[in-house]
Write a protein that binds this DNA or RNA. Structure first.
Lengths: 157, 157
DNA sequence: GCGCATTCAATGCACAAGCATTTAATGTTG
DNA sequence: CAACATTAAATGCTTGTGCATTGAATGCGC
């Protein structure tokens, strides 16, 4: 790999960092302000709502903690606490797994489904508006009624 | 924007999250283990070493804190503390700005240049190996002597 | 059946990050 | 010049995260 390739990779990495920072920063604020959810919380709810897991028996709608952690790119401990937060809010529930009593099954509650459904339009609106801004500028999307006009008070980036 | 577009955007976002998590996780560990630097620390050192700033007088090699914060996607307070850490290690130095005595100029030290130069091969190696893994598989890069064979003990993802 | 390594989830701990506030220096307006 | 608004950076505080460890339940070898 020569210098030109290296430069290209570095530029690509910086671009990825910039995009990630931009989108996740806005997403965090919008979801948090309007729905009291963090990005990771939303992501976990979404996986649970979709009801597909890499670590479950076929037909099951319950998840192991570890399986969720992989999907949302969090450590096992981080997810353990995240689940605890969601449980405190009544959005998910833990159920012990009879087959292997070390394990814990997590599933979404009705309240959780409701919150996820409420937050989804905001989530999609932010992604549409910020992930591919050039597409939006070209007129492929409406400004999205959910995305506030941006009061721009000291957002950190 | 129709449902298909929305699905596409969501998939793109998840892909971006996955790539970001993968690369920054490995990068964090490699830089930290081998050079005692975090990803953000390295990024700041790199900007200082490059010596270009959006907020400096032409020809200057000193940076305002705020200008750096924008480039590395950190809040002003986070960067203030990051600079403090780097200064404690002797990698950067602060100098008050005579023109506007509220401001602070940050510049890299010789020791800082050394550490950055040491860490750069590791940084590049990780990017090459993990940012475009398909390119590497195709044989466009050597495995990079810097990137350890991955002992894989519980890396969280 | 009895140890011993393994695995799952929870917890202690340390630390980096963001927000809000503070302190200091500039600018601005009367 | 005096009062007030603005800007730069540092700091108090809270929170989310990862690593290491713990505790419990399994699985395995003998």
């Amino acid at each position: 790999m020569n210098d030109t390739d290296t430069d290209f990779v570095v530029m690509a990495w910086r671009a990825l960092l910039a995009r990630h920072a931009e989108v996740s920063c806005v997403l965090e604020r919008e979801l948090s302000d309007k729905h009291g959810l963090g990005v990771s919380e939303f992501e976990v709810l979404e996986r649970l709502a979709e009801g597909r897991s890499s670590c479950q028996e076929p037909g099951e709608v319950k998840f192991r903690v570890q399986g969720l952690a992989d999907q949302v790119h969090l450590s096992q401990s981080a997810l353990s606490r995240l689940i605890a937060r969601l449980e405190r809010e009544g959005l998910v529930a833990r159920a012990l797994c009879e087959a292997d009593r070390r394990g814990v099954f997590v599933h979404i509650t009705e309240e959780g489904r409701r919150r996820h459904a409420e937050a989804t339009p905001t989530h999609r609106a932010v992604l549409s508006a910020h992930l591919f801004p050039h597409l939006v500028d070209a007129g492929c999307a409406k400004p999205a009624e959910d995305a506030a006009p941006e009061d721009a008070t000291s957002r950190h980036a």
